[in-house]
């Protein structure tokens, strides 16, 4: 019971949805819904410097995914023991209205795990040795969720822009792409309905100029060769996302 807020009724039930009859795919690919091709990524819009109070921020939108991110730092952290390097602290949260099912205000285990994943994805990219005894705090809120793995990838991309907006020194921008395996084909940027249908989800974050993978997350059964193929496809996707990021950063100046 969250005593700080006025809660809704204790038992609330989602309205019963009528099962919609999905229109059969009748296009050439026949693999994905909405007539998307196998390597289609939803068009990305990123705008930096949307939260004036934060040192850096960014807003990311891709069709039905909307993410906002604020970065504070480097600021001196009470948490730091005497250390030669800075630390990254990340808080990832789905807004209560963002998913199909209402999420609570308190971070659940999955959100805490995603926070840890984002932290690990950025540790190789940020020049932490230039910020001893300081902490870089990253706060991400997902305003609209259309595919959890795609959201995670989008969040990583969004945070890269926010960090650049904050002027934090990095070795390279981090781009991230998500994929899933539908009928034996690796399909990029799955949305929520595609994610629910399949069991395999793949997320990769990559530094395009340095050609280094900073994080990989894969769930669901895949052949070893398929996962290697997925890595290659995601890396190509990350390279194209990088051009979008560069474009957005240069345009904003």
């Amino acid at each position: 019971m969250d005593k700080r807020r006025i809660n809704g009724p204790e038992i609330s039930v989602k309205p019963i949805e009528k099962k919609s009859t999905q229109p059969k795919n009748n296009k050439d690919d026949g693999i994905r819904k909405n007539n998307r091709s196998v390597d289609n990524i939803r068009p990305i819009f990123i705008k930096p410097n949307v939260i004036k109070k934060a040192n850096g921020s960014a807003y990311y939108e891709a069709e039905n995914i909307k993410i906002i991110c604020g970065v504070y730092g480097p600021r001196s952290s009470k948490r730091s023991m005497v250390s030669d390097e800075g630390t990254i602290y990340c808080e990832f949260k789905f807004a209560p209205f963002s998913c199909n099912k209402r999420c609570g205000y308190i971070r659940n285990a999955q959100e805490r795990e995603y926070s840890l994943i984002i932290q690990q994805a950025f540790l190789p990219a940020i020049r932490l040795n230039l910020y001893p005894k300081s902490s870089i705090d990253i706060y991400v809120t997902v305003l609209e969720n259309d595919g959890t793995t795609a959201c995670l990838a989008a969040a990583i991309t969004c945070i890269s822009i926010a960090l650049t907006d904050a002027g934090i020194q990095m070795y390279d921008l981090v781009a991230a792409a998500s994929a899933t395996c539908i009928k034996g084909n690796i399909c990029l940027d799955p949305d929520a309905s595609e994610e629910n249908d399949t069991n395999s989800k793949f997320m990769l974050s990559y530094m395009p100029s340095l050609k280094q993978v900073t994080h990989v997350l894969c769930t669901g059964k895949m052949e070893a060769e398929q996962s290697i193929e997925a890595i290659g496809i995601c890396i190509d996707a990350c390279n194209s996302i990088k051009t979008v990021m560069d474009h957005c950063l240069i345009n904003s100046h």
Partner: peptide, 17 residues
């Protein structure tokens, strides 16, 4: 059967594809 059921990276480094 040699199928990959999950994959996750952790810690602070990065690696070559």
């Amino acid at each position: 059967n040699g199928e990959i059921c999950a994959m996750q990276k952790s810690l602070y480094g990065s690696l070559n594809p």
